[in-house]
Amino acid sequence: MNKADVETMGIPNNPDLPLLLYRGSLVDFTNTCAEQFKKNNWTNSWKNGVFDYHHYHSNTHEVLGIVSGEATITFGGENGEKVTVRKGDAVVIPAGVGHKRESASSDFQVVGAYPNGRDHDMKTVDSNERDALKAIQRVPFPETDPIFGGDGPLVEIWSNVNQET
């Protein structure tokens, strides 16, 4: 997603940080997925699916670990990109990036978590986008990658993005 796509149908997205998709990065599932995130200080975990409407979190980043099944999720709002995720994949969603489940297998389940166990807000296209964008820009940078820890791709990629802006 590029900066020109930041404001898409009431979803602010993130003007700087890219969504990260780790294909097949999870080898253990469900309870051990939450433990992997916890080991890397991504906590306040939950297990469920993904909502079937566009929403985002303006106050925290989020990781989704796909622990069973598969789904197609639109990231970035109404005109965003549709991505099929499967068991073993993980997605790191920067604060502000919209996500919506388009379709899913009957056994689709994810484990979600947040850096430093932050509480998340729930924003939709009806939310005040201007205020949300200000909040998104104040979200702290994660200290670790939820899958790979301090040396993970998130730390390198997002640090480099922050240096370029």
Rank of each mutant, 00 (worst) to 15 (best):
P153E: 14
G10H: 07
H57C: 09
W42N: 04
V83M: 09
M122A: 07
D52K: 06
P153Y: 14
K3C: 01
N48C: 09
L133P: 02
N44W: 07
V67D: 00
Y22T: 04
N31A: 15
M122S: 14
T8V: 13
P140F: 01
N31Q: 11
T72C: 12
A135K: 11
D107F: 14
W46M: 03
N116C: 05
G24A: 10
N160R: 12
G117M: 08
H54Y: 12
E143G: 14
G24N: 15
D89W: 01
K134P: 02
F141R: 08
K123D: 05
T144A: 12
G76K: 04
Y114P: 03
N13A: 08
N40P: 01
S58D: 09
T124S: 13
S68K: 04
N79T: 14
R138V: 00
N116R: 09
L21K: 10
N31W: 04
L17Y: 13
H61V: 03
R101D: 06
A104D: 05
E164V: 12
S58R: 13
D52P: 00
T84E: 15
H61W: 14
V67Y: 10
T84L: 13
Q163T: 14
V50R: 00
L17R: 06
Y53K: 09
P18Q: 04
R118C: 07
R138Q: 15
T43L: 01
T165Q: 01
I147M: 11
P140K: 01
I157H: 03
T72P: 08
H120V: 09
W42I: 01
T43C: 12
D28I: 04
D126S: 06
K47E: 09
D121K: 00
M9R: 13
N41V: 04
P115W: 02
N41H: 10
F29W: 02
F37R: 01
L154T: 06
R130C: 08
P94D: 02
V67G: 10
P12H: 07
T60I: 06
E78H: 12
Q109E: 15
R86Q: 13
V83L: 15
G96V: 10
S68M: 07
S159H: 04
D126M: 11
M1E: 12
G80H: 09
Y53F: 15
L133C: 04
H120D: 11
I136H: 05
A90K: 00
F37A: 04
V111R: 06
P115A: 04
S105F: 06
S68Q: 12
G80D: 08
G96H: 05
P142I: 07
I66C: 03
G10F: 00
N40Y: 09
N160A: 14
A95W: 02
E143T: 05
G49M: 06
K47A: 09
N48V: 13
N128C: 01
P153S: 15
I73L: 07
F29L: 14
A104L: 02
E62A: 10
A104I: 03
E35M: 14
T124V: 09
D151L: 10
V50S: 02
K3A: 09
V155K: 03
F141C: 00
P140G: 00
D16W: 11
L133K: 08
